[in-house]
């Protein structure tokens, strides 16, 4: 559980480049060059994780998405 929390935090910080405490659509688009996902796919990831659709992805929302991913997968 701690490992998952640590990973969630690491990933959130990778996206939240300026350490704002939330991730914007622009932050997500910036990952385009770093991750093998198209801008459309990154947009879809953002929309899926941003459960209240306010345009800001909080750590809680991000964490929820990551938890559901982990629970549906075999974690290495």
């Amino acid at each position: 559980q701690n490992t998952i929390q640590e990973k969630t935090h690491e990933f959130f910080q990778m996206c939240d480049i300026k350490d704002k405490g939330y991730i914007t659509r622009q932050d997500m688009q910036r990952l385009n060059g770093e991750l093998p996902l198209s801008p459309e796919e990154l947009e879809r990831v953002f929309d899926t994780l941003d459960s209240d659709a306010n345009g800001y992805l909080t750590f809680e929302e991000f964490s929820l998405g990551f938890s559901s991913f982990v629970s549906g997968q075999t974690f290495p």
């Binding site: 690491e10 990933f11 991750l35 796919e41 990154l42 879809r44 899926t48 998405g65 991913f69």
Partner: peptide, 29 residues
């Protein structure tokens, strides 16, 4: 059900996203 299909597609793209983050962090594909 189109909603279920969209949900499955979103799960797929989320899995790709988190898998990519994991690979990036560990340095393995």
């Amino acid at each position: 059900d189109p909603n279920m299909k969209a949900g499955a597609a979103n799960e797929g793209v989320l899995a790709s996203f988190f898998n990519s983050l994991l690979s990036k962090k560990t340095g393995s594909p």
